[in-house]
Design a protein around this nucleic acid. Structure first.
Lengths: 210, 210
DNA sequence: GTCTATACTGAGATAGAC
DNA sequence: GTCTATCTCAGTATAGAC
């Protein structure tokens, strides 16, 4: 029954978002969904593949939108430089919209990134998007050396993942309940400053010399 | 025997660093350390308390150095503004040094942050440091509203954690093996730009109005 | 005080009956 | 397609040897 499969997906999405992937057992999921334990392994094969399908189901439309927006920003720039803020917004905005509509999913994604079991899943579902994003930022900042660009994208992913996660207050200072689009607006301002920052001294020297 | 306890700590540190906390079972640890399973619960009480003691053992000296350096930077600035880069270096430098000497520990910390089971441990071991750091950055950037400062520190922690983690190549682009002090130098340049960035539009408007 | 042996509960996975 | 029964391995708890 396809209904069984969807019930499992919906329930897992809710529970993963509430308690995290590791902390949610398959037995909790089947109890809440009212299905049998073996049904999960029949439909998905394993807990990890269930997660994989869950991510795919929700991330694909968001990522398609991101790619479309990135292409639009590049097209509008013609042969000139696209504004960095607009590039970052094309990447971060769709996630923020999806999050404000359905906080559950983004919390799942944030939690997953926070749990570190992403690598394989990130690789499969986000690789093409990352390459487009890299190209777009490079167009916005043509003078930034590629190595430095990659590091700065790396910093961006860290900040983004940490920000998506429902708990911006590991320090206990910030209160929760801030709308995602506000977080993202702050994040874009921060990241823009970071991407535009002067090169670190030793890297700048290497370039002068080499 | 205190030797048993240290053997457990050393072995756990290595295995947590290599494979992560969740992925490392107590049975792996005792096998590699050549001790009995119950010894862990005798000396530590639980897997989580073992982790807690492990973090404390290594983080405490690093954090004390960080606090001392922050105080030094502030003292040298007198009543003026301390340079932001020096504040960030006082915070990130000691970790980078510790990492270049003993990559294992910082990989553990990065992995832990990446696994998201930090909250309680972060709270206990890092809270006082965070408050000092906040005060120092505020002194360096007195015009930055506090709410915005807290968000930007939040972004910083995300980028930092992601950077410490041994796998800077979740995108598959960056190669590993980059010295920590180089990563940190790049990170400081990026963060400095982020902290100095102009306020996001809606936040800036709120301030004008209010 | 330290450590060993062993048992308990709950996790994910699987084989096979229906 | 679905469910029962069972397997292995996890973290944890305890009784008792030295």
């Amino acid at each position: 029954m396809i209904e069984t499969k969807n019930k499992i997906l919906d329930t897992a999405e809710r529970l993963f978002g509430e308690n995290g992937y590791d902390a949610t057992s398959l037995r909790q999921i089947i109890a809440a969904a009212g299905v049998n334990l073996a049904a999960i392994h029949y439909h998905f094969g394993s807990k990890e593949e269930l997660l994989d399908e869950l991510v795919l189901r929700k991330a694909q439309p968001v990522n398609q939108l991101r790619i479309a927006l990135l292409d639009k920003v590049l097209a509008e720039a013609g042969s000139g430089r696209p504004p960095l803020e607009r590039v970052l917004d094309a990447f971060l905005g769709p996630m923020s919209d999806a999050a404000d509509q359905n906080p559950q999913f983004v919390r799942v994604m944030g939690r997953l990134h926070a749990e570190g079991l992403l690598p394989s899943i990130v690789q499969r579902h986000f690789q093409p998007l990352f390459h487009r994003l890299q190209a777009a930022i490079q167009r916005a900042l043509p003078d930034l050396p590629e190595q430095e660009l990659l590091w700065r994208m790396h910093f961006m992913f860290g900040a983004m993942a940490h920000t998506m996660c429902g708990t911006p207050d590991s320090t206990g200072i910030l209160k929760g309940g801030v709308a995602f689009h506000e977080r993202i607006e702050r994040l874009i301002a921060f990241l823009s400053g970071g991407f535009r920052a002067p090169l670190p001294k030793s890297v700048a020297v290497e370039i002068e010399v080499g």
